[in-house]
Design a protein around this nucleic acid. Structure first.
Lengths: 329, 329
DNA sequence: CTGAAAGCGCTAACAC
DNA sequence: GTGTTAGCGCTTTCAG
């Protein structure tokens, strides 16, 4: 693959001059610049970004570590990130942690070797020590959804507490009185925020809280499917699932067992994935601005890269509930 | 960020020795190696991969250009790619072309500047000239799903012709006689392969072919929703959609209009996305091994990177139909 | 306006 | 077993 030297030779100028033309620097006549650029174009010259990165100490790359790209929630976030980065000329290294701590760590190291200019991370069971080394290496980090206490980093999320409050309030209004919850991981701040919203609303309504119908899970489709019977055994009259994918699992179980929604059991999800509106009984859920979340996360990161002295940002987006049929109308 | 030089100083050895320790090269005593590695670990040293790439002429990165990561079909393929690359120590640069030719080209250039070791591409309306420059630059390329005639590159796809044959045969067996088709782009070999399967089966059954009920589209959810009425106006008794997302759009339209599936209209999709099984009327469709497709594409690419003299590979995976309810049982 | 030269962090002959 | 040295392809002082 040809380099700046080849172009310099063909144009009978020095490397410096070619570099100046390429980078639109001053101190070069318009004529030579145009000529050089034309030759570059003709020969299909592409600058070697590894060489540039080495000297510029900047890769124009950011890393995105997410649990699972096949989950629509993360897919939309990724697209938001990607769309923003595209606008500002950055590239994206995608890392699927597969909800695995070891993978997450491996990718975190991988990205630091790649000298990405920053990292956007949706953490799994986050602990402070997992990420402090990134900060020691001065690599800007923005966390999505799961906050890590005592870690001074930028953070963006949808307001889980507010979203859960809204949907649980709606469920109670619909007459449900024994609402089981399928939570995510115990260390997930998203899951915990929603749980707190649920607990607060129940308390405010003077309702009993039964910890027996609060179950933790890995927040996958199968978890909804497998955990639904455990909850139903305990006579819940509704299930609030930590996300739509889990709710889909619950719905599938009910469908197979002939349990009627919303008459026998009310079901609510969280996320508002595309297919929720096209189910047998469309899913009542909480809408989150996923694309916006991703785009905003990228914006914060790029801002932080360009303004390292600027303080860390915390952004909380407000969700809205989408009332469909799975909890009555 | 500290470099190999800092480590060398701290250990009182030369750069070379540190490099040897890091790369597990021979010509170094076990003792010094262990010592150096321990120091690297302690200090949190991470090699600069830009510097390595520059000299090794290898980035251990591959680029993936897909139309839209929020489409589950592409999300699963991406995950397959990612999973394979992870195993062999490669990183993934994700590029959403957003079904836009200009974006695709932009990313193609971007990746060549990044000196990725190879590219996996799911092309949009592909033409030979779009990619020949990659080959001129000796960057290995594997195409997924849409083949480009006269371009000597590796290619992997599911057998669209066979899949379409199976599903259309099934539709005819169910008694449908006027099957409209919502196709993808006219230049899409996937779409064209399925069309050919449809046409051949109809011919073999001695059925009339009405080009009026063959419509092209951008293969999105909205296209299904918007094109369904045009087909229904023309008295089709079934619709074969180019993919499940389009079928979902058709289903939504029918649902809103009170058109019964499969009694009034039979609907079949293609892809077998997760949600197809959880619809009001579960979708009859064609299952494709998406994850396998992505993983296999990555495998082919890595093999080609390591064995440039090896011939280009063409792989065709066999799909199977999934009979549910949207075309009768 | 243009060029020579130094160097980014690392690897790989080649000496010792 | 270990160190010296010359680059990889580019940007950037500093002279002219």
């Amino acid at each position: 693959m040809l380099g700046i030297k080849d172009i310099a030779q063909e144009c009978n100028v020095s490397l410096t001059t070619v570099s100046r033309a390429l980078n639109n620097n001053k101190g070069i006549s318009e004529k030579t610049r145009d000529y050089i650029l034309a030759v570059c174009e003709k020969r299909g010259y592409r600058p070697n970004s590894a060489a540039r990165s080495l000297i510029l100490k900047k890769t124009n790359m950011i890393g995105l570590i997410i649990p699972d790209i096949t989950n629509q929630y993360y897919a939309y976030i990724s697209k938001g990130v990607s769309a923003f980065l595209e606008k500002v000329g950055y590239g994206l290294i995608l890392c699927n942690s597969d909800r695995n701590k070891a993978n997450e760590k491996m990718y975190t190291q991988f990205l630091s070797e790649k000298r990405v200019d920053g990292i956007i991370l949706i953490p799994i069971k986050p602990k402070k020590d997992d990420y402090s080394f990134l900060l020691n290496h001065d690599i800007p980090l923005v966390l999505i959804d799961n906050y890590v206490n005592d870690l001074d980093v930028s953070f963006i999320t949808n307001d889980n507490y507010a979203g859960a409050r809204k949907i649980v309030t709606h469920m109670i209004k619909q007459g449900y009185r024994r609402i089981g919850v399928i939570l995510g991981d115990e260390n997930s701040s998203a899951s915990n925020g929603r749980l707190t919203g649920y607990l607060d609303v129940l308390r405010e309504h003077g309702m009993d809280i039964d910890k027996g119908i609060l179950v933790y899970s890995d927040a996958r489709f199968e978890d909804g499917f497998n955990l639904a019977p455990k909850l139903i055994e305990q006579n819940v009259d509704a299930i609030f699932a930590i996300n739509d994918v889990v709710a889909l699992g619950v719905l599938k179980y009910c469908y197979l067992k002939g349990i009627r929604i919303p008459e026998d059991i009310g079901v609510a999800g969280y996320d508002d994935i595309e297919q929720g509106s096209m189910l047998p009984i469309p899913l009542t859920t909480v809408h989150q601005r996923k694309h916006t979340l991703g785009a905003k996360a990228a914006e914060i990161l790029i801002h932080e890269i360009n303004n390292p002295q600027f303080g860390k940002q915390k952004v909380i987006l407000q969700p809205e509930i989408v009332i469909r049929k799975s909890c009555g109308e």
